[in-house]
Computed example of a mutant assay.
Amino acid sequence: MKAVSVIGTGAIGTSVALTLTRRGITVHLEDVSATAARTAEAMGAGSVRAPDGRVDLALIAVPPAHTGAVLADAQRRGLARAYTDVASVKARPYAEIDSAGADPSTFIGGHPLAATERSGPLAGRAGLFAARPWILTPSARTDQSVLNRALELVFLCSGVPVIMDAAVHDRTIALTSHAPHLISTLMAAQLAQATEADIRVSGQGLRNVTSIAGGDPVLWRDIHEANADALADVLDAFATDLGLAVDALRALGGSDPVLRKRAEAGLDALLEHGSRGRARVAGRSGAPSAEVARLSVTVSEQPGTLTRLFTAVDELGGRIEDIRLEQAQEPPYGKVSLFVRRTSASELSRLLTADGWAVTLAPATASSPEHAARSASLNS
């Protein structure tokens, strides 16, 4: 990959641009706000000069409601060979791509799971995506070469690629991101009328619960609207548990011993359930399946290296089940661990070696949780 266009120079777009620029990629910046684009340029994120020809990839870093229209416009201009986005909702942009008359074959949805507490280009920073999951949601019409471009982008940003269906992504993110933000916001709203004495004695628990309640209200409204059904499903389940907690607390404050005992058991069950859920998040691991083997392939910073590797595996009939990225500061800069079916690992290793790749066949051992790509098949 030699040249990329970033459309939208907010915190995420600017962070991608800064990261790619430091990797030697030529980055062109666009934004409806000339001030934002110029600010990102002044930060060293790229140039506001239009590219002379088609770039390898265009990253659309705009709110979900605008992804389809921006993609259609960029395609009409012939801006790039491949397109991706960073919106935290995926099903709606895909639907709007169709209605906007855009070409779905050159687009793959993307969502890097990294965020900053502030917005705008000044909140951008290189390295934001290091060891963070980066979800990719190819559709049935996404060309394989576009997936390869997106995987290379994730690699260049030091992210961990996770392949997911768009609808599954939206349900998952409703549970793990959108609902927590809205619940945090509702808790924070209770503080708007709190007394100064209340705020003065607030502890770390309150700060933890409300830490994600900030952000641009207009952007979050757009996100919640775009993922409304999935978010409502999560909040319905939350409301049921909340109602049980309220009923139990009311009973505990009463005088009926039978109801009090029942309430104690119900509250204990809710607290235990919460502890188990928290343990799953705190203790997640990324151990690969025993049915796969690991091919460790040496890669360099030469533009297009990762695309050529994925293409070679595809042409040789390989099926990648998972990826781990390991980078170093000195040449050859890193290795890519490809987890493939154990039954085909030896032959694929031999064919890649014959094709000029430096390959080591190793057992599929677990790596650090930070580098765990909890993905389905990259070719499914």
Rank of each mutant, 00 (worst) to 15 (best):
Ala3Phe: 05
Val4Arg: 04
Val4Gly: 04
Ser5Met: 04
Ser5Phe: 03
Gly10Cys: 03
Ala17Arg: 00
Leu18His: 09
Leu18Lys: 07
Leu18Gln: 04
Gly24Cys: 01
Ile25Met: 06
Val27Ser: 04
His28Thr: 08
Leu29Val: 13
Ser33Met: 03
Ala42Pro: 07
Pro51Arg: 06
Arg54Pro: 12
Asp56Tyr: 02
Pro63Met: 07
Thr84Trp: 08
Ala87Cys: 13
Lys90Ser: 11
Pro93Tyr: 14
Tyr94Trp: 12
Ala95Arg: 15
Glu96His: 10
Glu96Tyr: 12
Ile97His: 01
Asp98Gly: 12
Phe107Cys: 09
Gly109Thr: 14
Gly109Trp: 05
Gly109Ala: 12
Thr116Gly: 10
Gly124Met: 04
Gly127Ala: 02
Phe129Thr: 10
Ala130Asn: 05
Ala131Val: 14
Arg132Pro: 01
Ile135Gln: 00
Ile135Glu: 00
Thr137Lys: 01
Gln144Glu: 07
Arg149Asn: 11
Ala150Arg: 02
Ala150Tyr: 01
Ala150Leu: 00
Glu152Ala: 05
Leu153Gly: 03
Phe155Thr: 08
Gly159Phe: 08
Pro161Val: 10
Ile163Arg: 07
Thr172Phe: 10
Ala174Lys: 01
Thr176His: 10
His178Ser: 10
His181Gln: 13
His181Arg: 11
Leu182Gln: 01
Ser184Val: 12
Thr185Tyr: 10
Ala189Phe: 07
Leu191Pro: 10
Ala192Met: 13
Gln193Met: 15
Asp198Phe: 12
Val201Met: 15
Leu206Asn: 02
Gly214Val: 03
Asp216Asn: 13
Pro217Asp: 02
Ala230Gly: 07
Ala230Phe: 02
Ala232Phe: 08
Asp233Leu: 00
Ala237Asp: 05
Thr240Lys: 08
Asp241Asn: 08
Leu244Asp: 05
Ala245Ser: 05
Leu249Arg: 13
Ala251Ile: 06
Ala251Phe: 03
Arg260His: 09
Arg260Gln: 14
Ala265Ser: 11
Ala265Phe: 13
Gly266Ile: 05
Glu272Leu: 11
Gly274Asp: 05
Gly274Trp: 05
Ser275Glu: 13
Ser275Trp: 10
Arg278Cys: 03
Ala290Asp: 15
Ala290Gln: 12
Ala293Asn: 06
Leu295Met: 11
Val297Glu: 07
Thr298Glu: 11
Val299Cys: 01
Val299Phe: 03
Pro303Trp: 00
Leu316Pro: 12
Arg319Ile: 13
Ile320Cys: 06
Glu321Lys: 15
Ile323Cys: 05
Gln327Asn: 14
Lys335Ser: 06
Leu338Phe: 13
Thr360Asn: 15
Pro363Asp: 13
Thr365Lys: 08
Ala366Pro: 09
Pro369Ser: 11
His371Ile: 09
Arg374Asp: 15
Leu378Ala: 07
Asn379His: 10
